[in-house]
Amino acid sequence: MSLQEGLDLDTRPGGARAAVEAVVMVADEPVPALVLAAALALPLERVEQLLRGLADGYDADGRGFELRESASGWRVYSRAEFADVVERFVRDGATARLSRAALETLAIIAYRQPVARATVSSIRGVSADATIRTLLQRGLVAESEDGSPNGAILYVTTGEFCERLGLTSVDQLPPLAPYLPEADVLDDIAGASR
């Protein structure tokens, strides 16, 4: 039995056209037609025809997305006419989804990186385990490749973090010193908590 027989695309709803569409929809980077043809066990010419048909169909239907070919392959993109809508959704949604605890933890990691979970918990005064897991899942922090001498996992911010803040690197974060109280005030606070 060949790979094509094993996939049996023609018996599925939408057939090969829908199979190409399903793969392109989940791809997080452009997919060359040749790669699609190999993955779906279809002739390259047929895959290219299906891709062009999908792109033309999305255009004709006035969809909010389009299928475009670039030098590196085919990918689904939101239409340029809706850039402001998508930007607003992403910008507003991203800030609304992070809790105060997540923002505090993210700030500590950003300014102290690489930093151990225990240090973050110590600074915040509560366990940071769940919050760090959330930040890891959202791709805003990552485990550092350089481990701690004592074996603790160290955390750093990611490129996604910088991208969301519009920074090219964490070196562009504003300095904290202007926002901190003077040393004598800190001493008073420390003395009051004893």
Rank of each mutant, 00 (worst) to 15 (best):
S121D: 11
G151I: 12
R46C: 01
V26M: 11
P181I: 03
A107P: 03
A101Q: 12
R97K: 04
V76M: 15
D92H: 12
L67V: 08
S144N: 13
V86W: 09
L34K: 13
E5H: 13
V185Q: 10
G166T: 06
P32Q: 09
A107E: 01
V31K: 02
M1S: 14
G64T: 12
N150P: 00
D56T: 07
T168V: 12
R117N: 13
S121Y: 05
G14H: 09
R133A: 10
G191E: 13
L36W: 03
F89T: 07
L9V: 11
L98S: 07
R133Y: 07
A37H: 05
T119V: 10
E104Q: 15
V141A: 03
A101I: 03
E45Y: 10
P181H: 05
E182V: 09
T105S: 15
Y179Q: 04
E143A: 13
R88G: 12
A22V: 01
G151E: 11
L34A: 15
F65M: 13
A27M: 08
Q172T: 06
I108F: 02
R46F: 01
V76F: 15
L165I: 08
R100E: 11
C162Y: 05
V90I: 14
E45Q: 14
A183C: 02
P175Y: 01
D59Q: 10
R138F: 05
M25V: 04
G15K: 10
P149V: 14
A116V: 00
R46Y: 05
G191T: 11
V76S: 04
D129E: 13
A41C: 06
Y111S: 02
L136Y: 04
E87P: 00
E143R: 14
L167F: 13
L7W: 09
F82S: 11
D10F: 03
E29N: 02
R52P: 00
A41E: 11
L135C: 06
V35E: 12
A190K: 13
D61A: 15
R112H: 04
G159R: 14
R63G: 01
T11P: 00
S193Q: 10
A183H: 08
L3N: 09
G14F: 08
D187G: 02
A55M: 05
L98H: 08
Q49T: 15
G15V: 04
A38S: 12
L54I: 15
P174E: 05
Y77M: 07
A41M: 04
R117D: 11
P30G: 04
V185L: 12
G139E: 08
G64H: 14
G62I: 06
A102P: 00
E48P: 03
R91I: 02
F161I: 07
I189W: 12
S148Y: 06
F161E: 05
D187S: 04
I109R: 00
P174T: 07
A83Q: 14
R100M: 05
